[in-house]
């Protein structure tokens, strides 16, 4: 079950950093390309971290950062996946799941 993926330690989840997906436009005129993610708390930090991590070799002229939770994705062709709670979540980040306080064994 998907829910088993969620980390059991709630304190850990509360201390998890926000994940941002990074898109780089390597040259003026080209489209932005997804290169990976960074952890950061605010957008300024996300931009700087993305710049430090993904453009060390001058690979960028423009950077976009988007909080992972804001990305909406289409579903793959094999649509009937039983245990996929939310079809539009891009990644299976366990921190996406909001559980009520005090819930145990999950």
């Amino acid at each position: 079950m998907q829910l088993e993926l969620i980390h059991k330690n709630k304190l850990q989840m509360n201390k998890a950093a926000t994940i941002w997906e990074v898109f780089i436009q390597s040259k003026n005129g080209l489209a932005h390309k997804h290169v990976g993610n960074v952890h950061a708390e605010d957008k300024e930090m996300a931009l700087q971290n993305a710049r430090d991590l993904y453009t060390r070799r001058n690979e960028g002229s423009c950077i976009w950062v988007v909080k992972s939770e804001h990305i909406v994705s289409s579903v793959p062709e094999d649509e009937e996946s039983f245990f996929d709670p939310s079809n539009d979540k891009v990644y299976r980040h366990p921190t996406f799941y909001n559980l009520p306080d005090g819930v145990k064994h999950i």
């Binding site: 998907q2 993926l5 980390h7 850990q12 989840m13 201390k15 998890a16 950093a17 994940i19 990976g36 993610n37 960074v38 952890h39 990644y91 299976r92 980040h93 366990p94 921190t95």
Partner: peptide
């Protein structure tokens, strides 16, 4: 770590 997180595990874990 970024690639690993796509599999449903956090960097903290």
């Amino acid at each position: 770590y970024s690639a690993c997180e796509t599999l449903g595990i956090s960097r903290e874990e």
